[in-house]
Design a protein around this nucleic acid. Structure first.
Lengths: 140, 140
DNA sequence: AGGGTAGGTCTAATATAGAGACTTAGGCCC
DNA sequence: GGGCCTAAGTCTCTATATTAGACCTACCCT
């Protein structure tokens, strides 16, 4: 918990202060969170964690992503150096994606998030159910 | 790294298998990631990490969120038991949001993500710059 | 009496995502 | 040797999500 708070306090320092007054306050956490905190990026990283995979394998693994978003997500991850893209000159060409070292380094922190998700999702669902049940007559 | 992979392998098991064939495969990781992996949730949790805060404090802390999304994000987090909402009968009423224990428990895993962001964002920007530079004439 | 505040809700405008047709060139079947 | 398939995209059109900003209620201050 000590570690947690120190990291988070470091973050809040970006948020507060006079930094506020000046315009698009630059916050690395926001930056990175906006990047990997989108709908598909983490999922891609996790899917690529076990082994390199080709475009259509990825599509099969994450069945509800559209081609368009898959392309875009992979491109963005490549751009940020988290994955690499390898084209093989077969016909039709096959394209393999794999985690770059930077992407590998993300696995550890992401794993702890997954652990959390795994352990707590029951609690979340319980809370959700009770909230929805209680909503009957509570005005806002 | 050992821990990382075990968590992630546990995850991939949901993705693969025959689970595939049956419809909306239920995967707790997807579930939770879709929840906290949206644009604002993590940011809210982090902002509330240091202390409970009121609606307008949160809005000031995260300057670029709209009222509408702030309301909605807070409501969803409350629904999932990550934060609690307390109305004080002042006039006009003030409403304070604070982390629930479940939300607290998310701080630790999130902190390791923040650490990663903090340490690596320079690498990410370097990769991004070099990718953008190289894009001049590479056809896809 | 006029203006300000807190915590919202509502509507219209805009940005983002999804579905699915189209592309290119070779391999496979009959 | 014509028809159909595949891989990895792209393109267009539509649907959904997000934003900006007006509006609301009740009180306090000057």
């Amino acid at each position: 918990m000590k570690t947690a708070l120190s990291a988070i306090e470091r973050f809040t320092r970006y948020q507060t202060d006079d930094a506020q007054s000046v315009e698009p306050v630059y916050c690395p956490v926001r930056d990175v969170l906006d990047r990997i905190g989108d709908k598909w990026s983490m999922l891609m990283i996790m899917t690529l964690a076990t082994r390199p995979q080709r475009f259509s394998e990825l599509r099969r693994a994450v069945r509800d992503i559209s081609k368009r978003m898959l392309t875009q997500t992979l491109r963005d991850l490549e751009r940020d150096g988290l994955i690499t893209r390898h084209v093989f000159p077969t016909k039709p060409p096959s394209v393999e994606y794999r985690l770059a070292p930077l992407g590998q380094s993300l696995l550890e922190p992401m794993a702890s998030l997954i652990d959390w998700a795994d352990h707590r999702f029951a609690d979340i669902h319980a809370a959700r159910a009770s909230f929805d049940g209680a909503q009957a007559d509570v005005p806002r």
